[in-house]
Design a protein around this nucleic acid. Structure first.
Lengths: 120, 120
DNA sequence: TACAATACTGACATTTTTGTCACTAAAGAC
DNA sequence: GTCTTTAGTGACAAAAATGTCAGTATTGTA
């Protein structure tokens, strides 16, 4: 199987997937949408205070380009733009939840080992 | 919940997880181990020809530091070193498979749309 | 005419990640 | 002493990702 996408060639769905969701903040952004949808830019900013606006917008554009999220502009003043997951975007939920689950497992393990080696 | 790990602070297991498996080749490396284990460096290189050796070793070191994989050196000449997933590393399987599954879905979608819009 | 609030964009700096090249280590065989 | 093979390391270059800052667009209201 060979996949051509945006001038690049991928030999597995996995590699294609990684190229799409591999961005620094992509999974975190998608996680926001799984919790609440739709979301305005300003709302995502509140949920992800560590991401600066410029970066956030860039990642949103990429996700939009890849059809993971949709963007809807309301013709009002002040401007209002709503983002939400597309159908294929919503299918990323198992990816995000499995990452969360593993992270929780890993952090439990850290705690256990910390207690084991702690000195008082 | 606050997690301190390697001089950094994480507020969710997800963020901790992303910091550990977020490296450029980490998921691909873990995927190799899910397919076959243990693996020698030279074997991983064959499976991931796009990763140069220096990079591969660096990613392996990071995974080892994070206790995702173990490294066993056989005291022989020429040197023989075997890597394999640790217990917590093996728990990454659902993460990897969900990414693969989603990628396959996405690539199916691409194909469908290509056919729809193709001209002959 | 100036101001408001939201959602941007452009140019550039900085940081991080990745890649390259040349080199080392190990110890038995010759 | 030199060669072999596998698995590395160090120093540096290049590229990519990310961050910063200042600025634009919109149009109803004061």
């Amino acid at each position: 199987m060979v996949i051509h996408y945006k001038d690049k060639t991928f030999f597995t769905g996995k590699d294609l997937a990684l190229s799409i969701i591999g961005g620094r903040w992509k999974i975190s952004i998608i996680w926001c949408f799984i919790q609440q949808s739709p979301l305005r830019l300003s709302e995502i900013q509140k949920k992800l205070p560590d991401v600066n606006q410029r970066m956030l917008i860039r990642q949103l554009r990429e996700l939009e380009d890849d059809k993971i999220i949709t963007r809807f502009v309301y013709p009002v003043v002040p401007p209002k733009v709503e983002y939400q997951l597309s159908e294929i975007g919503r299918l990323l939920e198992p990816v995000v939840t499995s990452i969360c689950d593993w992270g929780d497992n890993f952090s439990d393990l850290l705690e256990k080992n910390d207690n084991k080696t702690s000195v008082d």
